[in-house]
C-alpha cells in the first residue's frame, strides 16, 4: 500500500505531539459520553447477574448467576501485563461487583509478569498492601500467584488443585483455608471462570464439563477472542476500556473508564476529520490535474 504514500505531515513528530496533547487534555477533564453497549458485554453482565445454561455435554449445567459463595476462578493467563492499561477499569469494576455479590474468588496467574501486574495495580486497591492480611483472605479470596504449567496445569487442576499446588502465593497451605474446602476439583467445583485474555479454556473445560466461561481482554483482543464468543464457548466478553465503561453502566458501579472513552472519542474524531479532509483534498487535486 505504501507505494501510494505521499507524506502530507512531513515531520511525523507533529502527529506524536498531537496524540500526547489529546491524551493529556482528555485525562485532565473527562466528561461523560454516551456509550453503545455491545451484545457480548450485555451477555457478560447477564451471566454474572442472572446466570446462563451451558449445554455442550449432557446433562446441561445451570448457572444461576453470582451470589453469596459462588466459586469464581479468575485466570490471569493471557497478555494481561501488556494490556493492563486497556483492561484496568473493566477488571477493577468486575472485581468490585464480584465482591459485592459475595463471590469466593480464586486467582491464578500464568506468568510472573502477569502476577506482578495484578500485585502492583489491582490487589492493593482491593485488599490493601498485604492482601494475605485482609480479613477476606482465605475466606472470600485466595491468590495462587504465579504457578507455571499453562494449559497442562489446567488439565491437572480439573481433578485436584490442592494435590498439584498445595500452597498459595504467600506460602500458606491451601488445605487450611475455609474457602478452598469446596474449591478443588475445578471441573465441577468452579461455578464460573473469568479469563483475563485467557486461551484454551474452551477445549479444557467448556466442551467437556459445561463450565461457564467469561472473557476480559484489551480492545483488540476481540479480533482473536470473538470466534469463541460467536461459537458459544464464551458466554460473554468485556473488551478494553470501552468494555469497562459498559460494565459501569450495566452494573451501576462508579469507575474511571469514561475518561478513557473521552480520549478515544477525541482521537477518533480527529482521525475521521483528517481522513475525510485529506481525501477530499486528494480528490480535488486529482481533478485539477486531469
Amino acid at each position: 500500500m505504501n507505494e501510494m504514500a505521499k507524506i502530507n505531515w512531513k515531520d511525523t513528530r507533529l502527529i506524536y505531539i498531537m496524540v500526547f496533547g489529546i491524551i493529556y487534555i482528555s485525562s485532565l477533564a473527562p466528561i461523560a459520553l454516551p456509550v453503545p453497549i455491545v451484545q457480548w458485554s450485555k451477555d457478560f453482565y447477564t451471566t454474572i447477574n442472572e446466570g446462563v445454561t451451558v449445554d455442550f455435554n449432557d446433562p446441561p449445567r445451570e448457572f444461576g448467576g453470582v451470589e453469596e459463595g459462588t466459586r469464581v476462578f479468575v485466570l490471569n493467563s493471557g497478555e494481561t501485563s501488556k494490556l493492563w492499561g486497556d483492561m484496568s477499569e473493566a477488571v477493577t469494576t468486575v472485581w468490585k461487583d464480584l465482591r459485592a455479590r459475595g463471590a469466593n474468588i480464586l486467582l491464578w496467574s500464568s506468568s510472573p509478569d502477569n502476577a506482578a501486574t495484578l500485585n502492583k495495580y489491582l490487589l492493593p486497591l482491593m485488599y490493601g498492601i498485604n492482601p494475605q492480611n485482609h480479613p477476606d483472605y482465605g475466606v472470600k479470596f485466595v491468590n495462587l500467584g504465579y504457578v507455571a504449567g499453562g494449559n497442562q496445569l489446567l488439565e491437572q487442576w480439573k481433578d485436584d488443585l490442592i494435590a498439584i499446588t498445595p500452597y498459595d502465593a504467600y506460602g500458606n497451605s491451601l488445605a487450611d483455608m475455609p474457602m478452598m474446602s469446596n474449591f478443588n476439583e475445578l471441573k465441577v467445583e468452579a461455578d464460573l471462570m473469568i479469563g483475563l485474555d485467557a486461551r484454551g479454556l474452551e477445549t479444557i473445560y467448556v466442551v467437556r464439563y459445561n463450565t461457564p466461561v467469561l472473557e476480559m481482554g484489551g480492545t483488540d483482543s476481540a479480533s482473536y477472542l470473538a470466534l469463541s464468543y460467536t461459537a458459544g464457548y464464551f458466554k460473554g466478553m468485556i473488551m478494553g476500556q470501552r468494555g469497562g465503561a459498559e460494565y459501569e453502566i450495566l452494573s451501576g458501579i462508579a469507575g474511571k473508564a469514561r475518561s478513557y472513552l473521552q480520549n478515544t472519542f477525541t482521537i477518533s474524531t480527529i482521525m475521521v476529520i483528517i481522513m475525510i479532509v485529506a481525501n477530499v483534498q486528494y480528490v480535488l487535486k486529482k481533478k485539477e490535474e486531469n
Partner: peptide, 20 residues
C-alpha cells in the same frame, strides 16, 4: 505496546488516500 497506537496513527495519516 502503547507506542503501537502512535505508530499506527502516523502511517494512517500519511498513507490513507483513496487512490483505488
Amino acid at each position: 505496546i502503547s507506542a503501537i497506537a502512535i505508530s499506527i496513527l502516523s502511517p494512517m495519516i500519511r498513507i490513507y488516500r483513496a487512490k483505488t
